[in-house]
Design a binder for these strands. Structure first.
Lengths: 123, 123
DNA sequence: CTAACTGTATTATATGACTGATACGGATTG
DNA sequence: CAATCCGTATCAGTCATATAATACAGTTAG
């Protein structure tokens, strides 16, 4: 069963996107694997304190990307081939790195300052 | 006169927030300085292709933070003491670093992998 | 002075995100 | 078989974002 223990709500971005990204990141980390059972829409919405429709939107998006399999009436499961995992990993890393680099460059931060910043905030 | 040459619209976050962040980053970079004249609400809205009310919202937020001074009927100017600049710099760097580190850690990326990733995407 | 520009304010409309309530049929379990 | 869970769908309402159209008073430049 996929765990949402590490999930924490941020404000700013839509909740359904946060859920989508959470599951993708957990998959990249290897904590969510192919065939893992997902909590039902109702159970997860109660756990996170959000509306079932919001969770449904997340699951629908993931199913459209082929990362979830849902049969009407039955439980939902993760579908994670090696190829899909590679695609998701590359997608997440690129978007994360590009956004950070772009922002810091606009602030006039040098590469050395940026590296030192990340190193410091890593712990 | 403050330039918006480097401004590019992203989708995802509100436009008024993008304008606020743009001006803060330009100030941190030193390209926007104390006393600099800002484009009027109408001129900037036409330049960016957005509604004047959206620009007004950005300027109002910046004024509430003390980074802009507006007199009814007259032009608006940046107000950037060294203290304010330090505060903004720290605020932007911390939020940027924290967000990136948090995301990459959830993906199970090691510190070394993360540093290599940033180094590669810096160009 | 006057025209043009400025900041500021108001009202209305539209869309996306989120919530709340409810309903239906399929799948599973006792 | 029947109860319960499941996925799926719909409708209504709220809130934030953004647009559009005005309006008015203060400032400034010709």
């Amino acid at each position: 069963m996929v765990s949402f223990e590490r999930f924490t709500m941020e404000d700013g971005s839509p909740i359904y996107q946060q859920i989508v990204l959470y599951l993708k990141r957990e998959a990249v980390a290897g904590r969510v694997m192919d065939g893992d059972e997902l909590p039902s829409r109702r159970v997860l919405s109660a756990l996170l304190g959000v509306n079932p429709n919001t969770v449904q939107k997340s699951y629908r998006i993931l199913e459209e990307e082929g990362l979830i399999q849902s049969h009407s009436g039955a439980k939902s499961y993760m579908v994670l081939s090696g190829q899909k995992l590679s695609r998701v990993t590359a997608e997440l890393l690129e978007s994360e790195a590009k956004a950070a680099v772009r922002t810091l460059k606009q602030m006039g931060i040098s590469k050395e300052e940026a590296m030192a910043l990340f190193s410091r905030y890593w712990e």
